[in-house]
C-alpha cells in the first residue's frame, strides 16, 4: 500500500464554481444542520413510539400531537413498519453520514458518493418538505418541529446542490471527452484514468 500521509489532494476549485464544494468548510455546516434535524426528528419519533409522553411545541401546542398521531401518519407507519418521524430521522442521519464520508476532492474521486448524498438530500428533502406542508393542510393542524425540519431540509438542498452539480459536470465532461460508457462507469465509481484526470485538471 502507498503511504497516504505524503499524498494530499490539492485544495482547488471544482468547476463550475470558484471554490471547492467538497471542502470541510462547505460540508461540516451541512452535517451539523442535518444533525440538528436528526435530533428534532428523533424527538418526534420517540413520541410516536410513546417512549416519551409529550412533544415540544411552543406555538401550536397540542396540534403537534394531532399531526403525529394523524391517520396519514398511521398509514405511513403501517407501510414502512416504523413511524414516519423515525424514517425522517434516519434520512437526516444519512445526510450527515454521507456528508462526512470522503476526502476534500470527492466530487472527482467518488462521484457515486456525492450523487448518493445528493439523492438523500435533494429529492428526499424536497419530498419530505412537501409532505409536511401537505400534512398540515390535510390534517388541519400544524406541528412546529415538523415545520422546522422541513425548513432545514430546504436549507440543506440549497447548501449541498453545488457539490452534486460539480460531480455531474465532471462526469458530463468525461463523457464529452471520451464518449465511452466503460470510462464513464469507471469514473463514476472512482477508478482513475488518464482521461478523467485531464478533465479534472481542466486540460
Amino acid at each position: 500500500m502507498i503511504s497516504s500521509s505524503r499524498i494530499r489532494p490539492r485544495e482547488v476549485a471544482a468547476p463550475p464554481w470558484r471554490y471547492n464544494p467538497s471542502s470541510w468548510r462547505q460540508r461540516v455546516p451541512i452535517c451539523v444542520l442535518a444533525g440538528v434535524a436528526f435530533i428534532l426528528a428523533t424527538h418526534m419519533a420517540l413520541y410516536q413510539w410513546r417512549l416519551i409522553g409529550d412533544v415540544w411545541d411552543p406555538i401550536f401546542g397540542v396540534q403537534s400531537k394531532l399531526v403525529l398521531d394523524s391517520d396519514v401518519s398511521h398509514r405511513m407507519r403501517q407501510w414502512m413498519r416504523i413511524p414516519d418521524a423515525a424514517l425522517g430521522a434516519l434520512a437526516y442521519l444519512g445526510d450527515a453520514i454521507f456528508g462526512l464520508a470522503g476526502c476534500t476532492r470527492r466530487w472527482q474521486y467518488r462521484p457515486w458518493l456525492v450523487i448518493l448524498f445528493g439523492l438523500d438530500v435533494i429529492p428526499l428533502g424536497l419530498v419530505s418538505a412537501v409532505l409536511v406542508v401537505l400534512q398540515g393542510a390535510v390534517v388541519g393542524s400544524w406541528c412546529f418541529l415538523c415545520l422546522i425540519t422541513a425548513a432545514i431540509s430546504l436549507l440543506l438542498v440549497a447548501l449541498s446542490y453545488d457539490e452534486v452539480w460539480s460531480s455531474l459536470v465532471y462526469l458530463g465532461r468525461v463523457w464529452q471527452r471520451t464518449q465511452s460508457y466503460p470510462i464513464l462507469w469507471d469514473t463514476f465509481w472512482g477508478r482513475a484514468s488518464a482521461d478523467a484526470e485531464r478533465v479534472a485538471e481542466g486540460v
Partner: peptide, 18 residues
C-alpha cells in the same frame, strides 16, 4: 447506510492514489 461507506473514505480511492 453505514456499510456503503468505503473503509478508506478519508483518502482518494486506491487507483487515484497509485
Amino acid at each position: 447506510m453505514l456499510t456503503i461507506i468505503p473503509t478508506d473514505s478519508n483518502e482518494p480511492p486506491e487507483s487515484w492514489r497509485r
